[in-house]
């Protein structure tokens, strides 16, 4: 936990303001009902990931659907909404180590090849995807953790096309 986390609740009182009996109540009431986030148009709907397209069909990652589900799960939880009061904070749950902007950098801007000698702790791109997606599915008790839940088996047609492309 960084100091920033503490400062979300423990705000220094502005000059001239004194604590009264109902200050805390007023502050709590003033908290947002909903987490702040970008508009539906601003959130990309789908992201096509083809890192394993040699084995499976490319994955159509339902980006917007997932963001909406996370927002929905937070619901009217004032603590959660208070923590996610700034646009982009929700995004940084996955887009970690990226600045809070409308278009944070994608996974592959840091996660590239596996087993980087300079940073052995950083997973490669395929590892990063699987670790994040599956960890979240497990924690949120989403049953879909099997290979075929995300990776559609290759149709014979596309396999043939790929083979021809290689030749």
């Amino acid at each position: 936990m960084s100091n920033r986390s503490c400062e979300v609740c423990h705000i220094p009182l502005p000059k001239g303001v004194e604590l009264t009996d109902n200050t805390a109540k007023l502050l709590l009431e003033g908290r947002p009902e909903k987490p702040a986030t970008y508009t539906q148009e601003e959130i990309p709907e789908k992201i096509v990931i083809g890192k394993l397209s040699n084995k499976y069909e490319s994955v159509e990652f339902p980006h917007r659907k997932i963001v909406n589900k996370i927002i929905e799960n937070m619901g009217d939880n004032k603590l959660a909404n208070h923590f996610h009061a700034e646009k982009g904070t929700t995004c940084s749950g996955c887009h970690h180590n990226a600045p809070l902007t409308k278009q944070p950098s994608g996974c592959n801007s840091c996660h590239t090849k596996a087993f980087n000698d300079k940073d052995m702790h950083k997973p490669g791109i395929i590892g990063a995807y699987h670790l994040l997606c599956m960890e979240c599915h497990t924690t949120m008790k989403i049953e879909k953790v099997g290979c075929k839940d995300c990776h559609k088996e290759k149709s014979p047609q596309s396999s043939a096309l790929q083979k021809r492309g290689k030749e």
Binding site: F115, M120, H121, I126, H130, M134
Partner: peptide, 21 residues
């Protein structure tokens, strides 16, 4: 082939450091 990097390859000494970390 490991999709989750459940297997990582490296110098044994480095792997021990990673495991401890």
């Amino acid at each position: 082939s490991c999709p989750t990097e459940s297997l990582i390859f490296g110098k044994r000494d480095d792997l021990l450091k990673i495991a401890r970390a």
